[in-house]
């Protein structure tokens, strides 16, 4: 059953050095505040998975929290490159990171398998591409019923899954709407789940395309208004596109990034 915790307490309780952690959210509802708290608490040696690492993992990688990255598209959306991620892959700064690279369809299937409690997912994908030569977790498989050649990808089952949602009710049930990406799958696939929310309400209003996660699949609910910034929360905030643009310059320079980390930690 979900406990209402302060964000620092939730990260301290559930996120530990060397764990497999996922902060999901597809452009919308990215749990940035939780990422910044992980940096503040100085976690290291994390394996992290996200379809789109986005700025949140660029920040975690640059701050030295990450030893392995599992992903499918590592750019700054609408702006350009993730320079901290590139620096880690190309120059090993601030430390070397291992990468495990997939496509979106493959990652989505890995999340679905994780949520379903299956060891692997299966898709019509990767055929003829160079990805299987470099990623051991892309394996050809033959359909036992039709003989068709398909591709197997292993389930993702993090120790801790972290998402941001619009609302929780007083029992700790969680509701999100708008673009909900793979967040439902991330929560269900993870051993522990932390959800930051914009606000707590007495009762949920229905929303078109709304998704409700019951309290008993969530371990901690943390009330963090604006916890998705510079990403956005439909109904609460707009995406801060100038922040994403400005990050290009901060992320490009190790010293400027260092100043940014100091600001976050102070």
């Amino acid at each position: 059953m979900a406990d209402f915790l302060d964000l620092p307490e939730a990260i301290e309780r559930y996120v530990h050095d060397g764990q497999f952690v996922a902060l999901e959210g597809f452009t919308h509802l990215i749990p940035f505040a939780a990422g910044h708290e992980i940096i503040r608490q100085g976690r290291t040696g994390l394996t992290v998975a996200r379809m789109t690492p986005d700025l949140v993992y660029d920040q975690l990688i640059g701050a030295g929290c990450v030893s392995k990255l599992i992903f499918s598209w590592g750019g700054n959306p609408g702006v350009g490159s993730l320079h901290r991620m590139r620096d880690a892959i190309q120059e090993g700064w601030p430390g070397p990171i291992e990468i495990e690279e997939h496509s979106h369809a493959g990652m989505a299937e890995r999340w679905r398998a994780g949520a379903a409690g299956l060891p692997f997912g299966v898709l019509r994908g990767y055929v003829g591409t160079s990805l299987p030569e470099h990623t051991e977790t892309i394996v050809p498989i033959t359909c036992p019923f039709t003989g068709e050649q398909l591709t197997a990808v292993p389930a993702l089952n993090p120790d801790v899954g972290i998402i941001h949602a619009q609302q929780a009710d007083r029992d700790g049930n969680v509701m999100m709407w708008g673009i909900t990406g793979v967040q439902k799958e991330c929560v269900l696939a993870s051993t522990r789940a932390i959800v930051t929310v914009e606000e707590v309400v007495d009762t949920f209003e229905p929303h078109v395309n709304g998704v409700v996660l019951p309290a008993w699949v969530v371990d901690a609910v943390c009330v963090v208004p604006g916890g998705a910034h510079p990403s956005y929360a439909d109904g609460y905030s707009e995406r801060d596109n100038p922040y994403y643009a400005a990050w290009d310059e901060i992320g490009r320079d190790r010293d400027r990034f260092g100043e940014w980390v100091e600001e976050v930690c102070s």
Binding site: T180, N209, D234
Partner: peptide, 24 residues
């Protein structure tokens, strides 16, 4: 849209579904 998950895409869409469903 400024990004693939821009709110202007979901706001006026016929349906907004989970990412594993769009691919599968």
């Amino acid at each position: 849209p400024a990004s693939i998950g821009d709110g202007v895409l979901s706001e006026f869409a016929d349906a907004v579904i989970a990412v594993p469903e769009i691919f599968a």
